[in-house]
């Protein structure tokens, strides 16, 4: 599994570049590279559905980020850290990291050996129960279709939310209110 470690290492390097580089366009491009690496890792770990979705979403997110925010002149200006932000950030992440290191050994399944108490059911019964040969499709659209309803609703909420945030003006002016009264 050496390629997995190489790819994760690449992702870590890419994300470090993304958050520290001064030019914002380079930062967004670096995020794109990280997402691409993630998508390849998904392929290596035998999750083609997720890999396809990841790469497509990656493109959409990067296009949105670049088009909506970065083609302004002043936007390229870099501003640094918050006062004490770096120290706080390092302290907090270090804390989380150490606790996780201590607790992972007792309770988390070993890499490459999932527990699969419930999920062994799905491959055995997917074709008979739902008629779909893609087990992941069978899960998201039949066994756990309610989750997918929620997921679609999240996106719908985000669309209405974006429309709400982008509208201008939000409040009616006082004189209009007087008229309507």
């Amino acid at each position: 599994m050496i390629e997995l470690y190489v790819l994760i290492g690449l992702m870590i390097a890419g994300s470090l570049i993304a958050i520290e580089v001064k030019n914002l366009l380079s930062a967004v491009v670096a995020v794109g590279v990280v997402g691409l690496g993630l998508s390849i890792i998904f392929l290596i770990l035998k999750a083609p559905d997720v890999a396809l979705t990841q790469i497509v979403v990656e493109i959409a997110a990067v296009v949105l980020l670049i088009r909506a925010t970065l083609n302004r002149d002043i936007a390229m200006k870099y501003c640094g850290n918050r006062p004490f932000g770096a120290i706080m950030g390092i302290l907090f992440t270090g804390f989380v990291f150490v606790i996780a290191l201590i607790t992972f050994k007792d309770g988390l399944n070993l890499f490459g050996a999932p527990l699969m108490t419930v999920s062994q059911f799905y491959p055995l019964n997917a074709i008979e129960g739902t008629g779909a040969t893609n087990v992941v499709s069978a899960i998201i659209l039949d066994y756990r279709a309610y989750d997918t309803l929620g997921e679609a609703t999240v996106l719908f909420t985000a669309v209405v939310g974006v429309l709400t945030v982008m509208r201008s003006p939000g409040k009616k002016k006082e004189e209009d209110l007087q008229d309507s009264k």
């Binding site: 999240v154 909420t157 985000a158 939310g161 709400t164 945030v165 509208r167 409040k171």
Partner: peptide
């Protein structure tokens, strides 16, 4: 769902 809707509603006055 509830969280994203509430983020948007907080910004309703824009």
């Amino acid at each position: 769902i509830a969280s994203i809707a509430s983020y948007a509603l907080v910004a309703f006055g824009t």
